[in-house]
Write a protein that binds this DNA or RNA. Sequence first.
RNA 1: UGGGGCGUAGUGUAAUUGGCAACACGCCUGACUCUGAAUCAGGUAAGUGAAGGUUCGAUCCCUUCCGCCCCAACCA
Length: 568
Amino acid sequence: MSDSENKTIDFIREIINEHNKSGRFDGKVQTRFPPEPNGYLHIGHAKAVLLNYGLAEDYNGKFNLRFDDTNPEKEETEYVESIIEDVAWLGVNWEGRLFYASDYFDRMHEWAIKLIKDGKAYVCDQTDEEIREYRGTAKTDESGKRVTLPGKDSPYRNRTVEENLDLFERMGKGEFDDGTRTLRAKIDMAHPNLNMRDPVMYRIQKTEHHRQGNKWCIYPMYDWAHGLEDSIEGITHSCCSLEFENHRPLYDWFLDQLGIHHPQQIEFARLNLTYTVMSKRRLLELVKNGHVNGWDDPRMPTISGMRRRGYPAEALRDFCKRIGIAKTDSMVEIELLESCVRQVLNQKAPRVMGVLNPLKVVITNFPEGEVDVLDAVNNPEDESAGTRKVPFTRELYIEREDFMEEPPKKFFRLAPGREVRLRYAYFVTCTDVVKDDKGEVVEIHCTYDPETRGGDAPDGRKVKGTLHWVSATESLEAEVNLYERLFANENPNKAEEGKSWLDNLNPDSLAVLKGCRIEPSVADKEAGFICQFERQGYFNIDKASTKDRLIFNRTVTLKDSWKKIQEK
RNA sequence: UGGGGCGUAGUGUAAUUGGCAACACGCCUGACUCUGAAUCAGGUAAGUGAAGGUUCGAUCCCUUCCGCCCCAACCA
């Protein structure tokens, strides 16, 4: 990546430039992405990883992937594995620097003892309710508002160093029950920032850790642990989301007390997307309650969901670059993401003809049993993609919506007596319409003009419409999943009175089409293969697809100006 | 209430840090077209949350006000 392409610089790069000027970190840049393995990564995480990785790239620095696994209650190996896979898929290279906060537990423990010895931390026997009360947050006042009070010292605040050392050791040995004691930093119970009112550093939690097993009975809290993790790894710029801004004084305090390497924490706004929920808790709920089919359901905003849906990593990278980075709370329109996806796929996806809702067409003047093999361009945007063969036969399928018995104005497709082009094949003219008892069109008859083979008329006559088609006999049957937005509202988090965010789910987010017909060239393609079904959109073969049961997912539709005309 | 942040077209970011606001997505025209796609050309749209002030000149500096977000877990 050259930095010449970036004429404007975001506020984080501005800060780094200043550091480089002042020499604060000797011109070094080291970043990290520190996910907690308690869920799958989503597009918001992609923004964070790519930001951190991009910073390292731009400044010739290094990037670490680090699992912030300090709370065994919620963390699982499954999540660790998925995160590694997703980050790699995004094209991020951590060059072997894959770390776990839990590997630093011993050092953190030693530092905690140092703070105790320095009289800067103490063991507190207050219950969580008492801690909250003493911290100075009265629940509500008469008017129902929360009020902040000065805060009172814990009665255990002035224990001797010896007693603290002894109790802390015994906490670690598991002598006390969960929740009965904590190690707290001795800062200032009157501090206007509540985070500074003697925050908890360790809690007793006799839970098995996914990597440490039962080695620990106490686990460090985020505020205590995070700065240490960054410091140990020599991080220079620790980027996190806005809600941690309040925590920066604490991040700084711990590092200053210890006198160790002190990175700069920088906060930026997390990504919000229209029609999408981004909270891990809610995504977990969607999965657990079966509103979607797993974390990688193609409707999910997870990296794995988007990958399964067919979104290319390149599009996600481009998207994250385009949304920029700032401190303003914002909501990005999903159309921008879709635009990025289309842009990449338009260049790369081979074209294929697939009929979603087949309508039979009989070419009455085409010989029965004959197969005419035609050449079709694989990708008009990329000549090197070459051509392929598509079989033309007497019986074909076209898209149901490409035929209208009584066409409105501006309808350029097939209708009785009208001539259109079948792509890469022939001009055909509709001569007859066959209906069933209910009056439904079940089949149409056409004649073809042999002179137009390949799609051009030697006499120079033009047609208004070109349709995709497929041979009825020489095509493959497929199942196609049509995905729409998972939620019906721009901001699914905002529920109407008396309703929950789940009521905003779009009931039509998935339509499964069966009996679709795809040209035979995809027969040997495997899961993940992505192509454009001409005139319809981009589709990929789903991981559940088999030889006997071909399954496609619709990644994104093509832009459709005919639809817009219709809606007017 | 206390503390911490943020306000620029519909949306997201810019603006040589004081020189009459740009880019992208969206939207609307038109051209072209064997994808009603893509591409190309053009257009619509903010006077920068508000009011004052400093200045020849303010998105940028100062003051006051307004609005929105976050925190007040032994989560991260």
